[in-house]
Design a protein around this nucleic acid. Structure first.
Lengths: 215, 215
DNA sequence: TGGCGCTTGGAACGGCGTTCCAGCCATGTC
DNA sequence: GACATGGCTGGAACGCCGTTCCAAGCGCCA
């Protein structure tokens, strides 16, 4: 049957992570699925951290594959950001992984793609680094939050249910201490994560637009 | 001698986390420092996750203590954001913790503080939720990145050294694949994390300013 | 055919979070 | 002053994890 290989190990790791989250990935379960022992896996993979990085890279490769040449920079950035968002949404365990920066190469690739478009936007040289960093940090922040939200609920629960529960909790907060959360509880109930994520990107892009020198 | 208490346990946990990072906190080391066994600790603390949440809350309480009443909203937001930044800078292990949202109450408190100021900025009702979320996600994103950077180096290394190493790596990248990273390598070397963080906050605030209806 | 080096997989190690429980000690009662 | 009570302690033990080790298997080349 299939020979052991790094690709097969990483693919199986992704499957385990998707099924049971970060806790679902361990070398014994991995060995069972691959019909081998822990030792054999270590021949192809340095350690668990290495495996997690490889799994993150594998999943994010698709998100970064979208070709944006020819698109206006704003659209390219939105497409790229949504690609990352959708990847994290489909594989919540990536959120934690990205926040750990263990996958430096992947993070750098995202940063580079963003930076190229920031440059294309006509942002002054001196501000390009800050602008690209702000976008990257926002994207990674949302990734972490979304992953945490997904993890905080049993896998079967629907998103509407989850949001409804949180909205109810917000609406019940002390009005003196949490006026804002109470006020936006209804907006929380009605909101769409993806759209809100994009609204944040647009907000940063609007801020970046104010940096452009009058030509 | 000092009786065991939740406060003493949490304080010791913070000390261990500050000294050796997330790996430094375990119930045996904690027991040794408190001259007791693991069992006694469990009388005051539900489990490790509970302890981490309590430790995060304890450290972040200071950051949120800064009184900003009377300040203009922009300044209040900047002060609040810097408070979180400095807390994470001083205790890098919080970064991971915030990204995990395990400490929902703490995150909510930060969100509330931001939201109140967003409201004071005159942002239209319908956009307040998105604006506050964008700011929160950006802050949490930076927290995660900074914590990861701090963790990626042995504790003794100076920040200048670390940044120098990364800048050198960026400068050596393939010009065809990473033109942007190469171009900003020098800006990376010269940049200040705290100032760059604030630049990102200002960028989002500038974007938020474009939302204000002409009065 | 024989040997050799890449690959396998199961056993074992040390460390972790957590549970369990026998005992301690301060307090309240007669 | 003896004694029961119950919150609290701390050490032993359990099961799981990442990781290491090594005896055995396998295919290729001389």
């Amino acid at each position: 049957m299939g020979a052991l290989s790094r690709e097969r190990i990483v693919a199986t790791a992704v499957a385990l992570l998707d099924a049971d989250g970060e806790a679902g990935l361990n070398f014994r379960a991995l060995g069972a699925r691959l019909r081998t022992g822990p030792g054999a896996i270590y021949w192809h993979v340095a350690n668990k951290s290495d495996l997690l990085v490889a799994a993150t890279d594998a999943v994010l490769a698709d998100a970064l594959a979208a070709d944006t040449t020819g698109h206006p920079p704003r659209e390219a950035i939105r497409t790229l950001a949504l690609g990352v968002f959708d990847a994290v949404d489909a594989h919540p365990w990536i959120g934690t992984q990205l926040a750990r920066l263990a996958s430096q190469a992947t993070t750098l690739r995202v940063f580079e793609r963003i930076g190229q478009q920031v440059r294309a936007l006509g942002v002054p040289d001196a501000a390009q680094f800050d602008a690209a960093s702000a976008l990257l940090n926002y994207i990674l922040g949302v990734a972490g939050q979304n992953a945490a939200n997904a993890r905080s609920q049993p896998p079967g629960t629907s998103r509407a249910e989850v949001i409804g529960t949180v909205a109810a909790r917000w609406a019940d907060l002390d009005p003196a201490e949490y006026p804002f959360a109470r006020a936006v509880a209804e907006q929380l109930r009605a909101h769409d994560d993806r759209a809100q994520f994009l609204a944040g990107v647009d907000l940063i892009l609007a801020g970046i637009a104010t940096l452009r020198p009058p030509s």
